[in-house]
Nucleic acid binder design. Structure first.
Lengths: 159, 159
DNA sequence: TATTGTTATACTCTATAACTATA
DNA sequence: TATAGTTATAGAGTATAACAATA
């Protein structure tokens, strides 16, 4: 409750009080930094933030239905349609309408899609590597574990 | 590396492999859930995600320059202009062009702005409260501490 | 010439609702 | 009637670039 008589001129001296304990702000700031790092790491490519996780998940679950994929990654149907369509156009994903339920769409990677994933897999996995952000390996693991609880609400298997 | 012979029909049985250790995905999913909780908590109001932190910070640092505020909260100038303008229009913020540098804008809360902040402060601070997300108090504190390192890159004072 | 803030434009992700086709 | 996906539209947040006023 120390209101400064003279307003701070330097961002590092600004008091944000209990905002230091706000998950809402801290998650947003961490996310913004992640976003920045993403575009540095993937500059020159036309890989977008949401695409790697989609390709990765389809690779591990070939034939997954678009709706199931969307529920796993929290991608809403309307957005999934556009995101998938772009990856189909790029030649990375194949769509198949299965005979047992012709409303649905099953997804799998093309050979080109697998190649694309392999080329960028390491870059993606190393995003926000511990060394870059001043965390020890133990802190990094702890952070992942806690974020999984937030992200999956305890419903997801987290080995 | 256990590619299922039959694709999973249930999101909870989908294997996401090393995506479980991806800060990029986990931060996004946690952020999406935060977003959801924000709109539940603030439904019926017209408070937007970015506004509370802005009002909060101006309250603690009256007379702060718009650029300094933006650098603290990672809000780019173009977005800051629109966000602040909306809060001025709502009657929550006063803008003042100081004589010592007439390029800049200094911000402070109106009485109405302070009232608005007080009315919503607790709701905002309780967003993603520990109990709601299956974290113990200790885990919650640990998560905040780790996120501060990501969010502020070690540059910010974190008591 | 550099800095502060503004305007204009575009892109990503998200949200909602109305729609088609299938079940 | 319900479900899977599509289309259309809108909003919040971010990004960039060009600009005006001031330093």
């Amino acid at each position: 409750m120390n209101i400064p008589l003279v307003p701070p001129e330097d961002p590092s001296t600004v008091d944000i009080g209990q905002l230091n304990n706000s998950l809402a702000l801290l998650l947003r700031l961490a996310q913004v930094r992640m976003y920045d790092q993403f575009f540095v790491a993937f500059s020159g490519t036309d890989v977008r933030p949401g695409e790697m996780t989609v390709l990765w998940t389809i690779d591990l679950n070939p034939g997954i239905k678009q709706g199931v994929l969307g529920r796993v990654l929290s991608i809403k149907p309307a957005h999934a349609t556009k995101l998938i369509q772009r990856l189909v156009d790029a030649g990375f994903i194949e769509r198949r309408v299965p005979p047992e339920d012709r409303r649905s769409v099953r997804l799998s990677l093309t050979a080109e899609g697998r190649g694309h994933l392999e080329r960028h897999r390491e870059t993606f996995q190393n995003l926000y590597a511990a060394a870059d952000i001043g965390l020890t390996e133990a802190e990094h693991r702890a952070l992942l574990k806690l974020l999984r609880k937030l992200a999956f609400d305890g419903a997801q298997a987290c080995p």
